[in-house]
Each structure stands twice: as structure tokens, then as C-alpha cells.
Design a protein around this nucleic acid. Sequence first.
RNA 1: GGCCGGAUGCCAGAGUGGACUAAUGGAGCGGAUUGCAAAUCCGUUAUUCGUGGGUUCGAAUCCCACUCCGGCCUCCA
Length: 564
Amino acid sequence: MPDHLVLYNTLTRKAEAFRPRDPRRITFYTCGPTVYDDAHIGNFRSFLAADVLRRFLESPLCRLVDDDGGPALQAGSRTVLHVMNITDVGHMTDDDAADGAGEDKMAAATRRLSEAKKSGKLPPGAGDIDPTDQHAIARFYEARFLEDARRLGLRVAIDAQRDPTLMPRATGAVPGMIAIIERLIARGHAYAVGPAGRQTVYFSVPSFPAYGSLSGNTLDALRAGQGGRVQESHQAEKKHPADFLLWKSDPTHAMRWASPWGEGYPGWHIECTAMAAARLCGPDDGRNEPASPLTPAALGALEVADVRPMIDLHSGGEDNIFPHHECEIAQSCGAFNATPADAAPARGMFAAHWFHPRFLMVEGAKMSKSKGNFFTPRDLFAKGHEPAAVRLELIKTHYRSNANFTEQGLKDSARMVERWRRVIEQGAGATRADGSGKAARAEAQQAFADAMHDDLNIAGAIGAINAWVGSLDAPTPEDAALLRAFDGVVGVLALERPAAASTDIGLFIPPAEPNPEVTALLERRRDARAAKDFAAADQIRDQLASMGYAIKDAPGGKVEVRKA
RNA sequence: GGCCGGAUGCCAGAGUGGACUAAUGGAGCGGAUUGCAAAUCCGUUAUUCGUGGGUUCGAAUCCCACUCCGGCCUCCA
């Protein structure tokens, strides 16, 4: 059991002590959503895993060691500068992707929304947007993403309300991307092909010998082309089959910008290099203070003098390992590291620690729209599941295992949250604060920290919480405080609870819907019970059950009504 | 074909050489409580850890083979 944070690193394929360059300012970049549709629970599992990591790094319960193995700064002075981008430039949907042809995702979204508009099936709130305006569509889905993210307690999305530079948009970063591409060309890591004003720019993969370090996909392995997606016909203008797109000139593209190579749009990978470097490699301006990311000119001149990584942590879904993160490393090191290209293997690989949560399964199967097991958080909220239960269900499995999202698991999670809430409520209301239970708290805190230090064993940490909570007979204010400290990492107790709609007799639990028919039945049942006519009372309860309502007598004569 | 990550009880999910006759939550069952329920509390439910070999005094944990599941091999969290 490590007494400090040990985290699996995709780059080294080992669990390693996490040692930030500067614990006072840990730099963390997460590849964010593409806003051409609503993000689903699988997307959110990955974002929430990164959020749990970030919260643990910020927690006083987390201990880091420095290079000599001694304790690094403990919480208080330790902060995490966490950036997550919004990809609002379309990228390719099909096999022609690497060559910049084909329909892009934003274009696909315009087509989808246009069709939806014709058939009257637009998502709520989308009625006013022009389905052919890609920027408007991106803003629309971005707003929905941020709403879901905040309801699920994604701290970076909450912080971005204060400091929008923490969640940069790709469309706002194009000048920086252009500056980096120019730099890559100047350094021999990229080349432009085609007639002047209509050029395509590729990254030269052979110019970066360390390519493949992250994914294990060496150039030799790639040459085998077993994925079947690299098409020979599109390889003609590239110098090497693995070279990837940095800029595509296309004056007909819906989203396009002026560039030295012609009007067009950037490749997918370059945006993360630009946004991560601009916000995380800039001057130390403190965490959530509004800051000016590096200007394009500064990005074009940024030089990382040593072979150390530029940022501490980088996360994304496991599918991002290749090609996206492999390409990010090549571009970023090629553009910013001072070391000559032929010394590339010694470079810092852009980020020191690469964090990749695995995919989410739903009811034991791969999530897909055709199987009907494809959910977005807002789908679940609309069905009456509260954000805290959804969050807990999405984070409670170790991030490097395929988690299985189930309806039953969602119910389990909801009950667990309710149990924890009782501890907070009873503890906060208790007058006794005599220091009792101190040993049990110390033990629970140790067990929780041990589990989290061990590559974020969240299930073990939750087990530690439950074992301790189960041992409490009368929670004290100190107990409530400790549970809040745990929840600083788990992040469910501070989330909004759906307000129960209250009538004189009923407390309607999921969303507010004081059904008058139900209320009338509750009143008849109350009268029957008062008259000790229990047969009639039970018959009404059965009737409510057949209507899909579970009822529970609460103190004070009210009845909690839960829609199944 | 190559490279990764997995497989634990009815379900979810910890545990990675000895205190494991396997944490924790749910579910089931029995009891307390309740008019009856719900919630809560107490007790209980795997001689067993995908399959077959091996190493070891000792294996869920290490090694080998196999089966199955998931990811990547230029759309994807």
C-alpha cells in the first residue's frame, strides 16, 4: 500500500509515483468533447475519472512525493490547473479522415439537424438555431454539455464559469495552431504540398523517431495497415504513409480560416497541442484567476529548454491513445522542445503522465444507438435519476477496467448516496461534538487514502467509507466533516438534489409532479387509515403501485411518493 | 495479423503469494420494528476466484497454454 499517489502511466506501462514539476501548480490537460451532438455517459465516464483524479490531487487526503521520495507540498498550497478543451471544429467521420477529405462531424451535425427540423424532431431548445450554421450548432451542444457537466460536478466546467480560458474552444485557437504549424515546417517536422494558396500541410512522422512510444504502434507496425482504414489512393501526396494532416486548404469548407497555405481548416491533433501549450505553458498566474493564454506569437516562439515534459498530466479516453495522443506528442515535442530532432527519443513526451480511462459498457454490452443502450446524462435525469446517483455509478469502478453501467447499479448508487446524506444530516444536527469516534475516523481516513493512493482505487475507497459509516450509531459533527472531506474527492453530496414537490399530504420525489389523482388517493388512504380500515388503505396502496408509484409513510403525516 | 486491458459470489465490485473459510454496496432469506408496508437495525447467503496445466511449504494473487470480453492499429471517451 503506497503512502503517496501512485498512478498508472500509459507511456511507461507502469504504475509510477506521480511527481509534478511544481506541486504548487500541477498542470493537467483533458481532451474534451466534440460538440456535434450530446455527450453520452461513456464520454462522461472518462471526464469524471479525470475529475476524480483532479479532486484527489487537490484533497488534503492526497500525499505526493518529490524526486527524492520526500513529501512534496501537501494540500493547501497545492493546486491543479486543469484545462479541458471544446472541440468545435469538425473532424472527419470516415476513412478519408487522415487526408482531410470526406464529411466532417460538424457538417454531419448540420445535415442531421436539418433533417430533424424537417421532421419536427429537433432537440428541445434547438428550434431557433439555423441548422446550416455550424458555429450555432457547436454553441448549442456546448451549452448542453456544460449544463450536464456541471450537474455531474465536473469541476473544470464549474471553474470555467469564472475563467473561460480553462475550457478553450478549438475555433478560438486557430491562429495559435497556424503559428505552431509554421514552426514545425521551419524545424523540418512538417511540409506543405500542392499549389500555392491551396496547400495541404502534413506532419512528417519519420522526423520524430520517438513516434509510437505511447501506443506501441511503431512505424513498422503501422505499415502493416491492418486497421484497413488507410487507403492507398489517399496516400499519394504524403511522403510517408503515417504522416498526418496539420492543415487542409479548402475554400468550400463551412468552417475555414485564412492561413499561409490557403483558406482552410486545421487537422484534428494540432488543436490540443495549441490549447494545452497556450494555457498550461504560460506564465504562472495562479490557478483559477482569469489569465491570458499565450498569444499565437508567443506560442510560435515557445521553447522548452530541457527534455522534461511540458505538462504534468494528460488524459483522454482509451481510444485517444492512438492516433490522437501519439500525434500530439510528436507535434508538441517537434514544435517546442529545444533538443535537436535527432535526439528526439530523450524528449519529455509532452506530458509526464498519461491517464486513459477505459470504456463503459451498458448492461454488459458495448454501448450503441442501435442496441438501445445509449444514454446521455440528460436522458437519465429526465427519467428521474438524480445527478449524484449517475455520478457515483459512473465513477465507482476502477478507471482502468471496463465498467458496466446498469439500471440496478444506478439504484444501488442512489441508495448509497442517501445513506451518506443521512450521516451528514444527522451529524450536522448533533449537539455532541465530544471527540468520540476519533479512532474510527482516523482508521477510515487512512483506509480511504491508502486506496486512492494506489492508482485511484475508488471502489476500495468507497468500501472504506461504507465500512466506517456502517459502524456509526449516532454521527457527530466531526463525522459529518470527515464524510464531506471524502466527498471532496467522490463529489456526490454537494450536487443538486431534485426538489421534492410538496403538497399537504404528498412529497413527490423525482422531479416535481404533484399529480392531483395521486393526491386524491393519498387523502382517501389517510382517511381510511384514520378509520382503521386497513383493507381499504392497502387497496389504495396497491392501486398506486399499479400506477407506478411507490409510497412510504414519512414522519409528520406526509407520504413520500416515488415514481418507479 | 500486431499491440494493449480484462474475466472474482445472484448483481455491481475490491483484494495481486500466507491474518482470504474473499472488503464494500445491492439483491435474497430469517429476525426486530410497523396495523400492513417503506426506511432503519441485527443475523445470514462463495470450502470459492474463466478453463487446463505448472511453480511454491502455501496461489484469487506468480508462470505457461487455451476460451471468452473490451480497446487500438489513422471517426470515436
